[in-house]
């Protein structure tokens, strides 16, 4: 069955796309469509006009000064397979490889995963620990914002009407002297593949030669109305060796970073415990590597 949209506009330039988005409050961009098409079909979103971003040339990964820039229309499959992303941002590469199943990864885009603003967005925790910068354009101009400020609530992002997310910049990690870097993404759900995460966690730690954590960034998905940084837990373990006492305190602090709910996928209690497990394991691994 057709989805209930009345018009599809296929601009070939960003300016053209912005003009449509600015002039039509009933319009909405579509990229891979793997979330939006489902929402249009079941009536959760009602949009009369969709603006197809496929012709804007927004896909691509390039190394630029100080980091890697990923176009908003870059597909998950490309991100997961990209050598540069795998080397510098292994959590993002891993996360992109767990979005839906392979046929979804061949269609879903990074920009779409963010703009959909699901608390379970797989790439979000990886971008949060990378402190990625998002480039957003509109008829009024260009602005950059941190991914930390992007998610406002389930399905709600900082994108204003008429704005378009065009690229994501991941700054290269400055590894402190005498440190090695550990970066991981893990998610858990009811089966191994093709799951919406029940809890996901991205962690990045710079580990000193004495085993203490010089710096730590932690972010989780599906445990709050938005993907969240776990700053209380970060604070607790920073500068310490992740021994059992430190790990326990981090897990304790984590409980105040997150606010999971009961839903059809899992009860809040399970999410709290699973989040604790994933954090504990990440810290153990950081200590071990």
């Amino acid at each position: 069955m057709d989805v209930p949209v009345q018009q599809v506009i296929r601009p070939t330039t960003v300016a053209e796309a912005l003009a449509v988005l600015a002039g039509r409050p009933d319009s909405r961009p579509i990229a891979g469509g793997t979330d939006l098409m489902v929402q249009l079909r079941d009536g959760r979103k009602r949009v009369s006009c969709v603006v197809d971003l496929g012709g804007l040339g927004l896909a691509g990964i390039r190394q630029i000064d100080g980091g890697v820039e990923i176009g908003a229309s870059t597909r998950m499959d490309s991100i997961a397979a990209d050598d540069g992303v795998r080397r510098h941002f292994p959590a993002l590469a891993a996360a992109a490889g767990t979005v839906g199943a392979w046929p979804i990864q061949c269609r879903a885009t990074l920009g779409g995963n963010l703009a959909n603003a699901s608390p379970a967005a797989d790439t979000a925790p990886a971008l949060l620990v990378a402190e990625a910068l998002l480039t957003v354009v509109s008829a009024a101009g260009t602005r950059r914002l941190s991914v930390v400020d992007f998610f406002l609530g389930p399905g709600r992002s900082a994108l204003a009407p008429g704005e378009l997310l065009v690229s994501v910049f991941l700054p290269l990690v400055q590894i402190p002297p005498d440190c090695r870097l550990v970066e991981r993404f893990v998610k858990t759900g009811p089966r191994l593949e093709q799951v919406i995460s029940v809890v996901s966690l991205a962690g990045r730690a710079a580990v000193r030669t004495d085993g203490a954590l010089e710096s730590v960034r932690l972010a989780l998905g599906s445990v709050a109305p938005t993907p969240v940084r776990a700053q209380r837990a970060e604070t607790v373990v920073t500068g310490r060796r992740p021994d059992p006492v430190a790990r326990r305190e981090a897990v304790q602090a984590l409980q105040h970073d997150i606010a999971p709910i009961d839903d059809v996928r899992a009860p809040a209690r399970y999410r709290r415990i699973a989040a604790a497990v994933l954090l504990d394991r990440f810290l153990q691994e950081a200590a071990r590597v």
């Binding site: 296929r10 469509g33 793997t34 969709v50 197809d52 979804i104 269609r107």
Partner: peptide
């Protein structure tokens, strides 16, 4: 790709 999620126009 899952063709149920691709707009024909796209």
């Amino acid at each position: 790709v899952t063709s149920c999620l691709v707009l024909a126009a796209s």
